[in-house]
């Protein structure tokens, strides 16, 4: 564990907290993509299958990871519940039109072609990594369709993007300090994922400087 990894995870938790705070305080999930949340649910539930096999108390890191995994799984399930049930009438269904089955199918094909080992768990893990890289796309599309972005929603995406960027710092750190090599799959997907946020980052920082609400062109 290094400072980049810890900061990244903290930002990930903060982003989830911001998302729930936005929905709860405004009693509305306007501007939030159900499709992105659904994709995250698939990502977490395919990646964290090892929860069934790993003893949480094996080490301090395993314990930490287990807590985080359960938190990510339960919070994304709860978010989906809020959007689909309690605040259903505020959900922007008309604009949330990204065809996610292409993302899911594409990730599945990529996972069958590129994986660390030819075992079911490795292929499912690769699938989750590919899918996570593109899971934010429906959310970004929704914001582009509607243009005006609520502050708290833009903070949410900013935290999520920063979390990925910090993971890259973490990988560079581990490459040199722990001689951790052969992580090409996670590195490549993590970099692609971070790049997807680049455009958003640009407008976010611009809007923060001007002290205005974020407006996407």
């Amino acid at each position: 564990m290094n400072i980049f990894r810890l900061a990244a995870d903290v930002l990930h938790v903060v982003s989830i907290f911001l998302l729930l705070l936005k929905i709860k305080t405004s009693h509305s999930c306007a501007g939030i993509s159900l499709k992105t949340q659904f994709l995250y649910m698939i990502v977490f539930s395919t990646r964290y299958l090892d929860l069934f096999f790993t003893k949480p108390w094996h080490s301090a890191l395993t314990f930490y990871n287990t807590i985080m995994k359960i938190l990510f799984l339960s919070s994304s399930a709860y978010t989906i519940y809020l959007i689909r049930n309690r605040y259903k009438h505020t959900y922007d269904k008309v604009h949330d039109t990204f065809r996610i089955h292409y993302l899911i199918a594409g990730s599945a094909v990529l996972a069958l072609v590129f994986h660390i080992r030819l075992t079911p768990f490795e292929i499912i893990w690769a699938f989750s990594v590919f899918l996570e890289a593109v899971a934010i796309m429906p959310q970004l599309l929704l914001l582009q369709e509607t243009g005006q972005v609520e502050n708290i929603t833009s903070h949410y995406i900013f935290c999520l993007g920063s979390y990925r960027a910090l993971y890259i710092c973490n990988w560079i750190w581990r490459y040199f300090m722990e001689h951790r090599r052969n992580q090409w799959l996670a590195w490549a997907c993590g970099t692609v994922q971070t790049l997807l946020y680049a455009d958003f980052f640009y407008y976010y920082i611009l809007s923060q400087r001007q002290g205005k609400k974020l407006r996407l062109p």
Partner: peptide, 10 residues
């Protein structure tokens, strides 16, 4: 699964 040191991240 045979995760090794390769899956110690979230």
């Amino acid at each position: 699964p045979s995760v090794g040191d390769n899956k110690d991240e979230l």
